[in-house]
């Protein structure tokens, strides 16, 4: 399992980002009639406009994956900053930030993404929705950890030798929070990829003829019966990418917390 996972994860990330270079055909031009069945020239057949499905799948991950990665980074960074401030300062900054996070957590963020897509480009809408929906979760976890660390022996020893707050946060607190933030980054990425896929599928993101996994779902629904790989391939690509990120996040979380097993009851 372990032996298979890492090469698989590396391959998925590599193909998602740089698969376009491996594409046998131009992903935006026709090579055959619409919905051609898989053959030697195009192993996954063609889509509604006769374009090579394999080439489009190889090239179509970059948009959603980069969007999701950027959105996840923004959300985690915002949550990390808020969590550090709220957890370290306590008092009114904590109440303000935690209250804000609680409020945002009640907002349905796919709805936010769709509404923002009225005026913003798709990736920006995805990022904004991911930050609104995800940063509050990161903030909470980081805040709780920082509050706990604030009373740990090594942080108190640092206070006891008069270190400045900034130095304590960077030297003592951040290394312990980094793992949590890493696990959280994975979860935010999954949520952002889901949103990006939805926005693309709804036609609110990338526009034809650009290759994009979400948009391909939309274009190839009609050909599900004529050339099934045209629909299955982008769906599988999205699913595998999301699963790899979810597994990475779970491992990071397990490594850090070792969440206690539920006892015999």
């Amino acid at each position: 399992m372990r032996a298979v996972f890492w090469p698989l994860a590396a391959a998925v990330v590599g193909i998602a980002l740089f698969g376009g270079a491996l594409a046998p055909h131009d992903p935006t031009s026709s090579i055959a009639g619409p919905w051609a069945a898989p053959g030697a020239a195009s192993p996954l057949g063609t889509d509604s406009a006769g374009r090579d499905v394999l080439s489009r799948v190889l090239a179509g991950g970059r948009g959603p994956v980069l969007t999701a990665a950027l959105a996840a980074l923004c959300a985690t960074a915002a949550g990390l900053w808020g969590g550090l401030v709220a957890g370290w300062r306590g008092g009114w900054p904590d109440r303000l930030l935690s209250g804000l996070a609680d409020l945002l957590m009640g907002v349905p963020f796919l709805l936010v993404a769709m509404v923002l897509a009225v005026a913003l480009p798709g990736p920006a809408a995805v990022a904004a929705a991911t930050v609104c929906g995800g940063a509050p979760l990161t903030l909470r976890v980081v805040r709780d950890t920082v509050r706990r660390l604030r009373h740990s022996g090594f942080v108190e020893a640092a206070r006891g030798r008069g270190e400045r707050t900034g130095a304590i946060l960077v030297r003592e607190v951040l290394p312990s929070v980094a793992g949590i933030a890493g696990a959280d980054l994975g979860l935010r990425f999954v949520a952002a990829l889901q949103t990006a896929a939805a926005i693309g599928m709804l036609g609110l993101g990338a526009q034809p003829p650009a290759p994009d996994w979400g948009l391909m779902l939309r274009e190839n629904l009609a050909g599900a019966a004529l050339n099934p790989p045209s629909l299955v391939a982008p769906a599988a690509a999205l699913t595998v990418t999301a699963l790899v990120a979810a597994v990475l996040a779970r491992r990071a979380a397990d490594e850090r917390s070792g969440r206690g097993a539920v006892g015999a009851w």
Partner: peptide, 16 residues
């Protein structure tokens, strides 16, 4: 894992 699957991909899979 199931919770991580993008809904759009899941729906497309059902259709397929």
């Amino acid at each position: 894992g199931l919770a991580a699957v993008p809904q759009a991909a899941f729906a497309a899979g059902l259709v397929a």
